[in-house]
């Protein structure tokens, strides 16, 4: 028998969403997709910005001047949070799917993702806002 999905109105969709059981693994699944879409968008922007390199030093510096503003430093830090979560959780997914023991330890691995992620966020915060290795 063929399965035909009924068209659901928006309210039903919202109700489903509100009654959803937010298991840690499900939260990670949603965050992975949201951060993935954001990173693809950012990759387009990043490649466009670096186009300034081809137009010479003046053009490049003019574009880079924009990113020294405090709001962009904060944005860079937030971007790092997206990169970090997607990378760490991505390694977790690969371990779950490609190794024998990974799926049994997936919640422990998720905890590790958040702990390592938080520590790396602190480290990157120091690099971005204090620039200790800068000239």
């Amino acid at each position: 028998m063929a399965y035909v999905q009924a068209r659901k109105p928006l309210t039903t969709w919202l109700q489903t969403l509100l009654h959803y059981r937010w298991h840690p693994g499900a939260v990670a699944y949603v965050l992975h997709r949201i951060s993935g879409i954001a990173l693809l968008g950012y990759l387009f922007v990043h490649i466009s910005t670096l186009r300034g390199l081809v137009q010479g030093e003046a053009s490049f510096n003019e574009k880079m001047q924009l990113f020294t503003a405090p709001i962009f430093k904060l944005a860079e830090w937030l971007l790092f949070a997206f990169v970090l979560f997607h990378a760490l959780n991505g390694v977790r997914i690969a371990l779950l799917d490609l190794t024998q023991r990974g799926s049994r330890a997936h919640i422990a691995l998720l905890r590790l993702v958040y702990v390592v992620g938080a520590l790396a966020m602190l480290g990157m915060g120091v690099l971005i806002f204090w620039d200790p290795f800068g000239a």
């Binding site: 030093e57 510096n61 880079m64 990113f67 690099l127 620039d131 800068g134 000239a135």
Partner: peptide, 14 residues
């Protein structure tokens, strides 16, 4: 991104 200069200076990128 180790330092601001490493990524944002024209000469180091070139």
């Amino acid at each position: 991104h180790w330092s601001a200069a490493a990524g944002h200076e024209f000469s180091s990128s070139v």
